[in-house]
Amino acid sequence: MNDEIIFFIDGVQVTGRPGQTIIEAADEAGVYIPRLCHYPGIEAWGSCRVCTVAANGRPCSACTQPITTGLVVENDTETLREYRKSIIEMLFVEGNHFCMFCEKSGDCELQALAYRMGITAPRYPYLWPEREVDASHPDVIIDRNRCILCARCVRVSRDVDGKAVFQFVERGPEKKLTVNAEARLKDTDLDVTDEALDVCPVGALLKKRVGYAVPVGERMYDQEPIGSDIESNTDAAPAAATEVEA
């Protein structure tokens, strides 16, 4: 039975495979752990901290922590829900997020997480930063007001598209997304068909002229809360997830 690892999420027994992280095994078992920087199939990053769980009592990011036999993971607890809410609210006040006129509204993972967590307004004061918009590219726009520094585009452009168009410069609160050119996106070899453009969880990387092809109200998270696809992933759920004594 070397190809199975049995561990527990919130007291429920879950079966995973060697080499999997907590989030990968949880996804397959139909257990949703909220996340932002994680994206299947690319390098685990561990930066947003939304997927923070407690593994054997210690907080860690579920997207980077490998599963081990018997690992006891806490996921849906009041404390962890509170941490995640706080982190989502931090991201809202760090940037300039105006959902009502953002063309990503309804398809935005940040917005969808806020709805799922019942956030109506962030409790922290807005920081109102000045951020650059780059519309130089004929087909793509970068709106850094909405960038949450998740590095999905950085990783996918580098490892999937093989281009490394995106990178971060500066540090701390000054950290920002840059492009592989002196200043502007049009001077990079980014193409509108690059996969990096399809993984932005927010409205920071947008393709021009297609923003409202799907009307508001009919978008992904207008239909169901974020995570519903994972929770309906019933392949493994009833068989592997058996309630055990706490």
Binding site: S47, C48, R49, S86, I87, M90, V93, G172, P173, K175
Partner: peptide
């Protein structure tokens, strides 16, 4: 800490600004 955070993760990058303020 605001000055010295690397900015990689959300809580340290933003939380410390909010705490300092």
């Amino acid at each position: 800490f605001v000055e010295e955070s690397c900015g990689y993760c959300t809580p340290c990058r933003i939380g410390n600004v909010l705490l300092r303020d």
